[in-house]
Write a protein that binds this DNA or RNA. Structure first.
Length: 333
DNA sequence: AAAAATGACAACCGCCATAAG
DNA sequence: GCTTATGGCGGTTGTCATTTT
């Protein structure tokens, strides 16, 4: 048997509160406390239901409520907590003094959700979106490529390079979004429920594994491409395993510097997973002007200057081109 | 300038858990 | 143990303001 809503009684006012009503409510609660919300309206001289009074008090009139724009810190906190707790607005609000669950919920629905979507994240999972909307150009490129192959069009090498570069871009984008999100999630939160935390910190994959998963899921669609032996393009699925490189390749500082130099001179852009573990895979970019040593497994993609470097590509094959000149490199994006 | 669309946010609704009788 | 009242919560709607057409 359902319980009848408290506001069913006819004649009770609904809608926005007036200043007079607010004043009556505040005056009463300051004098007597709220006690039973059901009894309060009559005692306070309000033609409202108890529930309406309670909401007005807790969401708007209660002392200590912070109003106005959310700060950057608050925004970040909400994002972090939402990634872990989901739509547990009251739980999120408990970490933001002065903010109500209702306010946070509204802020999420009107701002943060859209912001995440715009950035290519799924607002529910906080993971990079892999649907058509988040990598449209890359997916279109893949579709075009597949279409060409399905219909046995002679594959123009430049077009293939271009299309594959698009796929790489997609993988790269997804990979870095994942990394960024991981960093967000790993920021310490005070007093988070351990169980919730356990459930949402959902994988134990190393960043290398994640990178490889991202790559394979992103470009699996072209995994069965066939290329001429003389072609310098190597489908991802045919790539030899990425393997350990020698210093300075594994020194993140050196790499960043080299990468910066390369970026600066538009000769090469190197992307790494931010780790310097022995098994770090490397996705490198390089312009067509960068010499590609014969027999090195370097994959140039002219349009986006992308290179894949595989196990048979000794560091010396490309690194001599990337002299460290400018140490100001900060971010690869 | 007016109408329509969109955004922001306060308030409401219904469900659920729990306490009290 | 059952029923009912209550408070809390999350989803949704309503209303007003602002922007766009």
């Amino acid at each position: 048997m359902g319980r009848s809503p408290c506001c069913d009684e006819s004649g009770l006012k609904k809608g926005p509160w007036t200043q007079e009503e607010d004043q009556k409510l505040v005056n009463y609660i300051e004098k007597h406390g709220h006690g039973s919300w059901r009894a309060l309206p009559k005692l306070a001289g309000l033609n409202r239901c108890g529930k309406s009074c309670r909401l007005r008090w807790t969401n708007y009139l209660r002392p200590g409520i912070k109003r106005g724009k959310f700060s950057q810190e608050e925004e970040q906190t909400i994002l972090n907590l939402h990634a872990i707790l989901g739509n547990k607005w009251s739980a999120i609000a408990s970490h933001l003094p002065g903010r109500t669950d209702n306010e946070i919920k509204n802020f999420w629905n009107t701002h943060l959700k859209k912001k995440l979507i715009h950035m290519g994240y799924d607002p529910i999972t906080h993971q990079p979106r892999t649907d058509i909307f988040s990598g449209l150009s890359q997916l279109l490129a893949l579709a075009t490529l597949k279409e060409l192959l399905d219909h046995h069009h002679p594959l123009d090498q430049n077009a293939a390079i271009l299309l594959q570069a698009e796929a790489i871009q997609l993988a790269r984008l997804q990979y870095f979004q994942q990394q960024q999100q991981q960093q967000l999630l790993q920021q310490p939160h005070h007093q988070l429920d351990a169980d919730t935390n356990k459930n949402t910190m959902n994988n134990n994959l190393s960043s290398d594994d994640q990178f490889e998963n991202t790559i394979s899921s992103s470009i699996g669609i072209i995994s069965d491409l066939k290329f001429d032996d003389n072609d310098s393009i190597i489908p991802f699925s045919h790539m030899p395993e990425l393997k350990t490189y020698e210093q300075p390749l594994l020194s993140s500082n050196n790499n960043k510097e080299m990468v910066h130099h390369a970026t600066h001179h538009h000769e090469s852009i190197a992307l790494c997973n931010g780790e310097s573990s022995p098994n770090s895979p490397w996705l490198l970019s390089c312009s067509s002007t960068t010499p590609s040593t014969p027999n090195s497994h370097v994959v140039p993609a002219a349009a986006t200057d992308t290179l894949l470097v595989t196990e048979n590509c000794p560091a010396s094959t490309i690194w001599p081109e990337l002299l460290v000149e400018d140490p100001l490199f900060n971010v690869i994006s």
